[in-house]
Design a protein around this nucleic acid. Structure first.
Lengths: 177, 177
DNA sequence: CCGCTCATGTAACTGGTTACATGATTTA
DNA sequence: TAAATCATGTAACCAGTTACATGAGCGG
């Protein structure tokens, strides 16, 4: 497998971290994520599992109970290697790049609005960001003693960034005086 | 036009902010952006212009010099309206959502690496982020007196977020003790 | 006149989306 | 027993990507 897509690698990582699991359960994890940026639809997930298995990065064994059949997947040694090399080091060039942020994109063209509308926009955006920040904070507290240290780390990252975005909106608001 | 894609809206916004311009010049702007998340390829840009014109959000007039012909596009009144309603308010639900960040995705699975590799990873990532931060800082200084206030604002946003990401990596590094 | 940039496009592909289809199992 | 959820997939679509094609104008 030449190069994993983000989704493929993410699924691979989840299989790795969850141990044997079904496409369905991975799908549930993706859907329940606080801000899922993938649909987690069957139409995406199942083909990914197929590709990963074809590339021998995961293997499956069917575990049928009664007439209901399902297959449990786990990473192979090659799969773990692929995951590790996907993560790095070496860290890819783009690592410093800003994640694409639809809110920032909109702010770029904020000049198209009247100053009043600009204020409304900024106010609404801040409300949403603050709500998000609170959610994440709650998440952090819950994950603090999580078995998986890096899930907590993720949440902390989310918190840092969300706070930064709030500060930024604050700054814009101030500059509109 | 039911709903603009991010790329369509972004192009529309650029046409709006630049005044009459050609697909090619918009393409150049996209390519020269500090962290372009679109390829800015002709295969993307030209069809977008076609769609925007079909939807009467932009109009064009050919400005041929000699045998060389090119068309200059500008937004129509409907185009400006579409841009404004794309920006909001009302601000969309997802505004608070975290932008998808490939670095964070990788950190989620950092546990797959040895602690040594984890440190290397974090070190490299930080170097890149710091380099980026410096670039952005320079950008900020240059844009400070820019004609377009919101371009400066964008850069400030980038700075806030990048600093937050650096602090986050710092925090992870500390927690590995 | 050769190569570079300007400038405009098309064609094939690809990864992920929505919507659909199917049937087993559990719960009200 | 009807509805919801578990669980597995397929099919059509769509936006953006890479790669290609074409030709004008310009500097060495």
């Amino acid at each position: 497998m030449s190069d994993l897509t983000e989704l493929e690698a993410c699924v691979l990582g989840l299989i790795w971290s969850q141990g044997p699991c079904t496409p369905y359960s991975v799908q549930q994890i993706m859907k329940s994520s606080p801000s899922p940026h993938w649909s987690g639809s069957a139409g995406a997930i199942y083909p990914v599992f197929q590709r990963l298995e074809r590339a021998a990065l995961v293997r499956s064994q069917s575990q049928k109970q009664g007439k209901r059949e399902s297959r449990a997947f786990q990473t192979t040694a090659a799969g773990t290697r692929a995951l590790r090399s996907w993560i790095g080091p070496p860290v890819s060039e783009w690592a410093g790049d800003l994640p694409i942020d639809p809110l920032r994109t909109r702010v770029r063209f904020l000049g198209a609005l009247s100053v009043e509308k600009q204020r409304t926009f900024l106010g609404e955006a801040r409300t949403m960001l603050e709500r998000k920040r609170n959610e994440i904070q709650k998440d952090c507290r819950e994950l603090k003693k999580s078995h998986d240290q890096f899930q907590y780390t993720m949440a902390r990252g989310a918190l840092h960034v969300t706070r930064a975005r709030i500060r930024w909106l604050q700054e814009i608001d101030d500059s509109l005086e």
